[in-house]
């Protein structure tokens, strides 16, 4: 036991030493680093604008995206498409619908595809990766062989195959196709870091302490394995947008084009890309910008979560 004078000295030291009472957790210190990163700020600004745009689209768009308002200015024979004009800042598309309104409302669908595909992919990957990494043995072998098979197929080809499985393509089949491609990537990533955690000293320490297995997996292994997975999720948000656009472009997007989506708009624009490149320019530019935003955030998150950068 410490003598009371020594204890007093320690307490005084602790109180006067300026040591903060509450410590700084890893997440908090990562956030502090993140806030100072210019890449993160640019990416976050892009995503912020995009999300606000998607949320406010119904009020910002002046026209119904399905209405063929400028139909009188469309002529298939003379290859005429409505140019920009008062009330229609970006002009119209091949069917005389207001391009500006379609771009705005298209952001909703694009956001939906990105978020849902990522969540489904992440969810599936978390389950498979946790099973493989935490249980190991034959469960690990079975799961990882399955994952290997899926990874051996080029991702776009796999997405196209999944998309083509459905008799009728809708927005949901696009999301599912994009998500399934991401599951093995998440699973492999998570399993890898779970295995590293399983061999780590602090998991051994928890085992030696007699902590129950479930608590070890969910309190120690999983939280410490999530860093790379979180980074990957932000990158997958970008990949999902691009993949969904590719599927739409290849004709596997939603068949119904009264609900606009950027990839689908880009796909429809390819017929007239020589004479009216603006129809491809706006959706393509939007896709690239948003994908860049997510990628920037993902990259800066990777740096911020890297333990080597601590302090």
């Amino acid at each position: 036991m410490l003598t009371s004078s020594r204890r007093q000295r320690i307490d005084d030291l602790a109180a006067g030493g300026g040591a903060p009472d509450a410590g700084v957790s890893l997440a908090v210190s990562a956030w502090r680093r993140l806030r100072r990163s210019p890449l993160f700020l640019v990416g976050a600004a892009i995503i912020g604008v995009f999300v606000v745009m998607a949320l406010l689209a119904p009020w910002l768009a002046q026209h119904d995206p399905a209405l063929r308002l400028l139909d009188d200015q469309v002529s298939r024979a003379r290859n005429e498409i409505p140019p920009a004009q008062p009330g229609h800042p970006l002009g119209g598309d091949q069917q005389g619908r207001d391009l500006y309104s379609r771009m705005l409302l298209g952001s909703q669908q694009t956001l939906l595809v990105a978020v849902l595909a990522t969540v489904i992919g992440l969810g599936g990957g978390l389950v498979l990766g946790t099973l493989a990494g935490a249980i190991g043995g034959w469960v690990d072998s079975v799961v990882m062989r399955l994952v290997d098979v899926m990874l051996s197929i080029p991702s776009l080809l796999l997405a196209v195959s999944v998309g083509a499985l459905f008799a009728r393509q809708t927005q949901f089949t696009v999301i599912l196709a994009v998500a399934i491609v991401q599951i093995p990537i998440f699973a492999r990533l998570l399993r890898g870091s779970m295995l590293a955690q399983r061999a780590s000293d602090h998991v051994l320490a928890a085992r030696a302490l007699g902590v129950r297995r479930r608590a070890i997996v969910f309190r120690h292994m999983l939280p410490n394995s999530l860093g790379p997975v979180v980074v990957q999720s932000t990158l997958v948000l970008a990949i999902a947008i691009i993949d969904a656009a590719a599927l739409s472009f290849l004709g596997l997007g939603a068949a119904d084009d009264s609900v606009p989506e950027w990839g689908q708009m880009l796909g429809r624009a390819q017929d007239v890309i020589d004479s009216h490149p603006q129809l491809a320019f706006w959706p393509a530019g939007a896709i690239i910008t948003v994908a860049l935003g997510f990628t920037l955030v993902g990259e800066s998150l990777r740096d911020a979560l890297d333990p080597k950068n601590r302090r």
Partner: peptide, 19 residues
């Protein structure tokens, strides 16, 4: 490396008690 970096000292110590 033998202390879980995500746990505060308190939760590291309570863990054994709880187990």
């Amino acid at each position: 490396s033998s202390l879980d970096p995500r746990q505060s000292v308190q939760s590291l110590l309570v863990e054994g008690l709880r187990a």
